[in-house]
């Protein structure tokens, strides 16, 4: 890597920083309860909720910091925060 004049940075490059390691609790879906309302995807401050082809979602544990907003806001309580085992 060479510093460009003025230090311009290429887009989206913080993705090299896997923030999943920060997590204490990890969110886990109960797909039986999920109504695909997309609220978890919308609210995630770390863009760590990805849509699946079947309309459900999955967590990107590379980036999920385990804040628990998704679980707290889920209208169907379809997300459980479980203690991370390392």
């Amino acid at each position: 890597m060479k510093i460009l004049p003025g230090g311009a940075c290429e887009a989206g490059t913080t993705r090299v920083n896997k923030t999943g390691g920060w997590r204490t609790f990890k969110p886990v879906y109960d797909y039986d309860k999920c109504i695909k309302c997309k609220l978890c995807e919308l609210l995630c401050p770390d863009m760590a909720v990805n849509p699946r082809d079947d309309g459900y979602f999955e967590f990107d544990y590379d980036y999920c910091k385990g804040c628990g907003i998704c679980a707290n806001e889920c209208p169907k309580s379809a997300i459980e925060m479980v203690l991370e085992e390392k």
Partner: peptide
């Protein structure tokens, strides 16, 4: 879309 003025 480049970013300018990052902190070093």
């Amino acid at each position: 879309p480049l970013s300018f003025g990052a902190f070093a």
